[in-house]
Amino acid sequence: MAVKFCSVMAVCIVAQFLSTAASSTTTAPQNCNNVGPCRTGKRGPIGPRGLPGVAGNCSCNQSDQIELQKRLETIEDHVFRIRRSSPDTYCLLGMKDGTIPDNAISVSSRENSKDHGRLDQLVDGWHPSSNHASRTGREWIMADLGKVKTVTGVVTQGRHNSNNWVLTFKVEHSVDGRKFYDILKEDRSELVRIFDGNKDRSTKVINRFPNPVQARFVRIYPLTFVGYAFIRFDVIDC
């Protein structure tokens, strides 16, 4: 009888163990930290891609598109004229903040001080190696914007630490760095536009072009100046 009783008890214990194990595999404990029976299984294969949605239909006809384009051009013209009439509003393109790196600044002379030509730079400024009259209109400083952008003008300052500044200058622009074009007068004549520069060494003077240009390279030629042709500048697109 004892042997039979023990056999029955053993069977009961084994049955209870198997039942507990089976239930533990179907119902995971709440807080098991991804270990043991509740460890996450491997992700199954990715299913097939769904069907593409139905293409949308444009309700605009040709005349609507033309009208919207005209309105956009009108708005852009208004914004441009507002910016031209607001001298304190302008958008710099990178000489001041270093977006234009030093190796993107070129000069006709004094290569070692070309980075001094950045707007608001606090050392002095850039100036050509010669102030001789024979070099007038031949010395320049140029910014490479990195890619072709819309350019609307330039901002200039004089020398930071002394009373030297550029009184007048002209501007050339290029998309490839080889063929340059002068900024011309507003009447679109063939006459080169001569810009009025600074009247002191620190005040910023904004000169907007008669019309925006597409350019990657913007080059400034000092023409007349006080003392030495020191200049600090940036290029603007608004």
Rank of each mutant, 00 (worst) to 15 (best):
V3A: 15
V3M: 08
K4E: 12
F5G: 08
F5Q: 13
M9N: 10
A10D: 00
C12V: 04
C12N: 05
V14L: 09
L18V: 08
T20W: 14
A21E: 13
T27V: 13
A28T: 07
Q30T: 13
Q30R: 03
G36S: 13
R39V: 15
G41W: 02
K42N: 10
P45W: 03
I46F: 02
P48Q: 14
R49A: 14
G50L: 11
L51N: 12
G53L: 04
A55C: 02
A55N: 13
G56W: 08
G56E: 14
C58D: 15
Q62K: 11
D64R: 12
I66S: 14
E67W: 05
L68G: 08
L72H: 09
E76Q: 15
R81K: 12
S85I: 00
T89P: 01
G94F: 06
M95A: 06
D97I: 13
D102H: 05
D102G: 15
S106L: 14
S108D: 11
S108F: 07
S109K: 01
S109L: 06
S109N: 06
G117W: 11
G117V: 11
R118G: 09
L119I: 10
D120S: 09
Q121H: 12
L122T: 14
V123F: 09
H127C: 15
P128F: 01
P128C: 00
S130V: 05
S134K: 05
R135S: 14
L145P: 03
G146C: 03
T152D: 01
R159A: 14
R159T: 00
H160P: 04
N161T: 12
N163T: 06
L167D: 05
F169E: 12
S174Q: 09
S174I: 13
R178S: 10
K179S: 08
K179D: 13
F180N: 04
F180C: 08
Y181V: 00
L184V: 12
K185L: 07
S189P: 01
L191V: 10
L191Y: 11
V192A: 14
V192G: 11
R193M: 11
R193N: 10
I194F: 02
I194P: 10
G197W: 01
G197D: 04
N198H: 05
N198W: 02
R201F: 02
K204A: 00
K204M: 02
R208P: 07
R208N: 09
R208D: 05
F209C: 05
P210A: 00
A215M: 03
Y221H: 08
L223S: 09
F225R: 02
F225H: 09
Y228E: 01
A229L: 03
A229I: 01
F230H: 12
I231H: 04
F233V: 03
